[in-house]
C-alpha cells in the first residue's frame, strides 16, 4: 500500500511536469532568454542597422550615469508616475464611492466609467489630440467660452502644459481600474459596521474615515503598488501624445530606451538603460511579490 502510494505520487509529479512543460519552454524562449541577453547586450556597443557589436564592459553604464538625459528622464518618469497615480487614486476612490450609492441607471453609469480603461491607448490619444486641437478643439472653445482662458492654449507643445496634459489623460485612461477594484471591496464591507458607527453618532465624513478607509487600506496598498509599476513603465500614452517633447521635457525612461535603440541606433546603450530601469522597478516589484506571497501563505 505504502509503495503503491509513492508510485502514484511519482506518476502524478511526472504528469504535473508534463503539463507545465509547454509553459516552461515558451517562458525560456521568449522571456528568460531575452532577459538574460538584454543584460548581456548592455555590455556591448552595437550599431542597430549592421548589428555589429563590440565588447565595452561596463562603459555603457558609466556613460549613462554621467548623462544628464538619463537623470532628467528619471525625474520626468517620477513626476509622471506620482502625478498620474495620485489623480487615479483620488478620482478612482471618489468615483467608486459615488457608484456604490444607489444612483439612477447605476449599471449604465458603471459601464461608461469603465470604458476609457478598455479602449486602446491609440484611440484615447487620437480622441484627446482632437479635443486638444489648438484651432478647432472643443476644449479650447469651451474654456474660452467660460472665460477660463483668453487665448487658445497649446496643450501638448509647451511646458508645463505638456506634462500636465499627459498626466491628466493618463489619469482619465487608467482611473477606472481603481474604481473597479475599490468598488469590489466596498461591496464586501458589512453594513453592521456602518450601523454601529451611526448609532455612535458618526456623520458621513466620520464614517468614511473611521469605517470605509480602514477597510479599504489593504486593497489600496495593492492597487497603488500595481499601478505604480504599470505607470512607471508606460510607453504608449506618452510616446503617442507628445513623443517625449517638447524637446525632451516629457521623455521618460521607456521612451529613452526606445529612442536610443531605434532612433539613435545604439542597441547596447539602450539595453543598459533598460536594465537600469528594470533595477529601479525591481524595488516595487519585490515589495509587491513579497506581499502577494504573504497573502497566499496566510
Amino acid at each position: 500500500m505504502q509503495a503503491s502510494q509513492t508510485v502514484l505520487e511519482r506518476r502524478y509529479a511526472a504528469l504535473g511536469l508534463l503539463l507545465i512543460a509547454p509553459t516552461v519552454l515558451v517562458f525560456c524562449a521568449v522571456i528568460v532568454y531575452p532577459l538574460v541577453s538584454a543584460i548581456y547586450l548592455s555590455l556591448f556597443s552595437i550599431f542597430t542597422p549592421t548589428l555589429q557589436g563590440e565588447w565595452v564592459g561596463l562603459d555603457n553604464y558609466r556613460t549613462l550615469l554621467a548623462k544628464d538625459e538619463f537623470w532628467s528622464s528619471l525625474v520626468n518618469n517620477l513626476i509622471w508616475t506620482v502625478g498620474t497615480l495620485t489623480l487615479q487614486i483620488l478620482l478612482g476612490v471618489g468615483m467608486a464611492l459615488v457608484l456604490h450609492q444607489n444612483i439612477w441607471f447605476r449599471s449604465l453609469a458603471r459601464s461608461l466609467i469603465l470604458f476609457p480603461y478598455f479602449i486602446s491607448t491609440v484611440v484615447a490619444v487620437l480622441v484627446w489630440k482632437w479635443l486638444f486641437n489648438d484651432l478647432y478643439g472643443i476644449l479650447n472653445h469651451l474654456m474660452l467660452a467660460v472665460g477660463m482662458i483668453d487665448m487658445p492654449v497649446d496643450y501638448l507643445g509647451t511646458m508645463p502644459n505638456a506634462m500636465i496634459s499627459v498626466i491628466l489623460v493618463g489619469a482619465w485612461k487608467f482611473f477606472p481600474f481603481v474604481v473597479i477594484a475599490v468598488l469590489a471591496r466596498l461591496q464586501t464591507i458589512p453594513d453592521a459596521l456602518y450601523e454601529a458607527a451611526r448609532i455612535d453618532g458618526a456623520g458621513p465624513i466620520a464614517r468614511f474615515f473611521d469605517v470605509t478607509l480602514p477597510q479599504l487600506r489593504d486593497v489600496l496598498v495593492v492597487i497603488i503598488m500595481l499601478r505604480a509599476i504599470w505607470d512607471f513603465k508606460e510607453f504608449d500614452m506618452i510616446y503617442l501624445l507628445t513623443g517625449g517633447g517638447p524637446i525632451t521635457s516629457t521623455q521618460t525612461l521607456p521612451l529613452l530606451v526606445y529612442k536610443e535603440a531605434f532612433a539613435l541606433n545604439q542597441m547596447g546603450m539602450a539595453a543598459a538603460y533598460a536594465v537600469v530601469m528594470m533595477l529601479i522597478m525591481l524595488v516595487f516589484m519585490i515589495v509587491y511579490i513579497r506581499r502577494t506571497r504573504q497573502e497566499a501563505d496566510t
Binding site: 538584454a38 510607453f235 535603440a261 522597478m281
Partner: peptide, 12 residues
C-alpha cells in the same frame, strides 16, 4: 510586471 522595453531589444 516586467516592462516590455526590456525584452523588446533582444526579441527584435
Amino acid at each position: 510586471l516586467l516592462p516590455s522595453v526590456v525584452l523588446i531589444i533582444p526579441l527584435y
